[in-house]
Lab assay of single mutants.
Amino acid sequence: MTEYKLVVVGAGGVGKSALTIQLIQNHFVDEYDPTIEDSYRKQVVIDGETCLLDILDTAGQEEYSAMRDQYMRTGEGFLCVFAINNTKSFEDIHHYREQIKRVKDSEDVPMVLVGNKCDLPSRTVDTKQAQDLARSYGIPFIETSAKTRQGVDDAFYTLVREIRKHKEKMSKDGKKKKKKSKTKCVIM
């Protein structure tokens, strides 16, 4: 069974824990209790493949930012979460993405942009803004509501699919490099 290491990042209060708990335990946590770091595991079937999701729910508070490099190193894919009623959390996505790329030393890291709290009427981040940002990053965008469960499975499952595509691409690139290195030079 394939294991996928997913990391949920975003500013404090955007609903990272609520999304994760909704996926794992099928219930909505409405009281806000700032996370330092929590880890969850769940076995699911995605596109006919049974897999184990190892999900790291991270601290959004700035005082825990020193811990970010460590979990970013171990993560295979990242859910970059903002709240649709919090423009600052949307603007912060850029910083999370840049930090992930720096730590992973790669421009090509599996990510999904997630606009959470889409059940709320007080939207300050337009869907088109988020779609445009995701398009500019070359990553999928999904709106979710941890409260109603809308888009929750889709967000995590899409990230797994992005990781699969990335692994497939990397193995193809690896095979191309191996083929090239088999060419021999004969000096007579």
Rank of each mutant, 00 (worst) to 15 (best):
K180A: 13
K178H: 05
K169T: 11
H166Y: 13
R149W: 04
T127Y: 09
Y137A: 07
A155E: 00
A130W: 13
Y157H: 12
A130C: 11
F156S: 02
V125K: 14
Y137M: 14
D126N: 10
D132P: 01
Q131W: 05
I142R: 03
K128C: 09
A134V: 02
C185D: 15
L159R: 00
K128G: 08
S136M: 13
E162M: 04
R135I: 04
H166R: 12
Q129T: 08
R164D: 15
Y157L: 10
I139K: 03
D132E: 12
I187H: 14
V186N: 15
V160M: 02
R135E: 06
Y137D: 03
Q129N: 03
V160L: 05
A155S: 03
Y157M: 13
V152R: 07
K167S: 08
A134C: 10
D154C: 07
K167V: 03
G138M: 01
G138W: 00
K178G: 12
D153S: 13
Y157G: 14
A155I: 11
A130Y: 14
E168R: 03
H166Q: 10
F141V: 12
D126G: 07
M170A: 12
Y137T: 06
H166T: 09
K175V: 03
I142C: 06
Y157C: 14
D173S: 12
E162R: 01
H166N: 13
I139A: 06
V160Q: 02
H166S: 09
K165C: 02
Y137I: 14
Q129V: 12
E162Q: 09
L133W: 05
R164M: 13
F141R: 00
L159K: 00
A130R: 01
S136H: 11
Y137R: 02
T158Y: 08
V160D: 02
G174T: 09
D154W: 03
F156G: 01
E143K: 03
E168A: 12
K167D: 12
R135W: 04
R149D: 07
M170S: 09
G174L: 10
A134D: 01
T127C: 13
M188P: 15
I139G: 03
R149M: 06
Q150R: 10
E162P: 00
L133S: 03
D126Q: 06
F156C: 13
T144F: 15
K169D: 09
V160W: 02
V125I: 08
S181V: 07
V160C: 03
K178S: 14
F141A: 02
Q131K: 08
K178L: 06
G174W: 00
E168L: 05
D153A: 14
Y157T: 14
D132V: 03
D154N: 09
R135M: 10
T127N: 12
T144G: 06
Q129P: 08
K128M: 08
S145V: 12
T144S: 06
H166D: 12
P140T: 02
R135A: 13
L159G: 00
S145R: 01
I142S: 01
A130M: 11
A130G: 05
G138S: 01
K175E: 15
K128I: 07
D132S: 05
V152T: 05
K169P: 07
A155L: 15
R149H: 08
T158Q: 10
T158M: 05
L159E: 00
K178C: 09
T127R: 04
V152D: 04
L133G: 01
R135N: 07
M188L: 09
L133P: 01
V160S: 01
I187A: 15
E143D: 12
Y157I: 13
L159A: 05
K167W: 01
R161C: 01
D154S: 09
Q129Y: 07
R149L: 05
F156K: 01
D154T: 10
D154M: 08
A155F: 05
L159F: 00
V152K: 04
K175G: 13
R135D: 15
D132H: 05
V152G: 05
E168F: 06
K165Y: 06
I139S: 03
K182G: 13
A134M: 01
Y157V: 14
L133C: 03
K177H: 09
D173G: 07
Q131E: 13
D132Q: 07
F156R: 01
A134G: 02
D126Y: 10
V152A: 08
T158A: 06
T158G: 04
V152I: 13
Q131A: 11
Q129W: 12
V152H: 04
D132Y: 03
T144L: 15
D132A: 07
E162A: 05
L159T: 01
L159I: 12
K167Y: 10
D132K: 07
K167A: 12
S181H: 03
T127E: 10
F156L: 15
V125Y: 08
H166V: 06
K176V: 02
R164C: 13
E143I: 02
K172M: 14
G151M: 06
S136G: 09
V186T: 15
T127M: 08
E162T: 05
K167G: 07
D126W: 02
C185E: 15
T158I: 08
A155C: 09
V152P: 07
L133I: 08
Q129D: 09
L159M: 03
V125E: 09
D173L: 05
L159H: 00
K176A: 11
I163G: 00
A155K: 00
K184W: 00
L133H: 02
K167R: 07
E162S: 03
V186L: 07
L159V: 07
K176S: 15
D154A: 10
C185G: 10
L133E: 04
Y157F: 12
E168V: 08
Y137W: 14
A155R: 00
D132M: 04
F156T: 07
E162N: 04
L159D: 00
K175M: 04
K178F: 11
D154V: 05
I163C: 08
R149Y: 11
F156Y: 04
R164F: 13
